[in-house]
Simulated assay, not measured.
Amino acid sequence: MKEFVTYTALRIVLLLASFGVVVGVMALLLDGQVHLFWALVAAFLISGIASYFLLDRQREAFARRVELRASRAAAAFEERKAREDRD
């Protein structure tokens, strides 16, 4: 659960930082006019691409954790199934 919270929090921070930068650049380039919809779209794109490169370690840790839990659940299921077959 810790890996999920860490990765999600970092994604949110990256999105907010991207949004701030995009709004700042738009305000500078468009004489103070900021289109929030397009700023949000651009921030989503920028943060998505940036997170692919910057948050690789956190994403891998989260994936390992999910894989470990899934393999444990599958092993427990197989054990219960084998026990049923014996009875």
Score class of each variant (00 low, 15 high):
59 R>F: 14
85 D>Q: 15
58 Q>Y: 13
13 V>E: 05
50 A>N: 05
86 R>K: 15
21 V>H: 00
6 T>E: 14
43 A>F: 04
18 S>H: 04
13 V>A: 15
22 V>M: 01
76 A>T: 02
43 A>T: 03
68 L>E: 15
33 Q>M: 08
39 A>H: 04
80 R>Q: 14
70 A>T: 09
22 V>W: 02
60 E>H: 14
79 E>T: 14
85 D>W: 13
71 S>R: 13
1 M>L: 13
18 S>F: 02
13 V>M: 11
2 K>W: 12
75 A>E: 15
65 R>E: 15
80 R>T: 10
41 V>G: 04
68 L>V: 09
71 S>L: 08
58 Q>P: 00
8 T>I: 08
39 A>S: 08
36 L>C: 03
58 Q>N: 07
73 A>N: 10
28 L>S: 11
67 E>F: 03
77 F>H: 15
15 L>M: 12
1 M>G: 14
35 H>T: 11
27 A>G: 03
73 A>T: 10
60 E>M: 07
43 A>K: 02
1 M>Y: 12
72 R>H: 12
43 A>W: 05
37 F>A: 07
84 E>L: 14
63 A>F: 09
11 R>A: 10
77 F>I: 00
48 G>W: 05
72 R>C: 03
5 V>P: 02
9 A>M: 10
28 L>C: 05
58 Q>D: 09
58 Q>R: 03
69 R>P: 01
31 D>M: 07
55 L>A: 01
67 E>R: 12
68 L>G: 04
44 F>M: 12
27 A>S: 15
54 L>G: 01
2 K>Q: 12
83 R>P: 03
52 Y>G: 06
35 H>M: 08
32 G>S: 01
16 L>F: 15
81 K>E: 14
52 Y>N: 09
3 E>H: 07
41 V>D: 04
43 A>D: 02
82 A>P: 13
53 F>E: 02
34 V>C: 00
16 L>T: 07
61 A>M: 04
42 A>Q: 04
70 A>G: 04
42 A>Y: 04
78 E>A: 08
75 A>N: 09
68 L>N: 13
84 E>F: 14
48 G>A: 05
82 A>T: 13
28 L>G: 07
27 A>E: 12
3 E>T: 02
16 L>P: 00
55 L>H: 08
85 D>N: 10
1 M>I: 10
35 H>G: 07
76 A>W: 11
32 G>D: 02
77 F>A: 08
25 V>E: 00
38 W>Q: 06
39 A>C: 06
72 R>M: 13
46 I>V: 15
67 E>S: 09
22 V>A: 01
2 K>P: 03
2 K>N: 10
58 Q>E: 15
72 R>G: 02
41 V>H: 05
41 V>Y: 12
49 I>L: 15
28 L>A: 11
64 R>N: 15
2 K>V: 12
22 V>Q: 00
51 S>W: 05
74 A>R: 14
40 L>N: 05
16 L>G: 11
14 L>K: 05
25 V>D: 00
16 L>E: 07
39 A>N: 02
24 G>L: 00
20 G>L: 06
6 T>P: 01
17 A>T: 14
65 R>M: 07
14 L>V: 06
47 S>D: 12
52 Y>H: 08
34 V>P: 00
79 E>M: 06
59 R>G: 07
18 S>E: 03
76 A>C: 08
46 I>G: 00
1 M>D: 07
64 R>E: 15
54 L>P: 00
61 A>C: 04
30 L>Y: 10
30 L>S: 03
74 A>N: 10
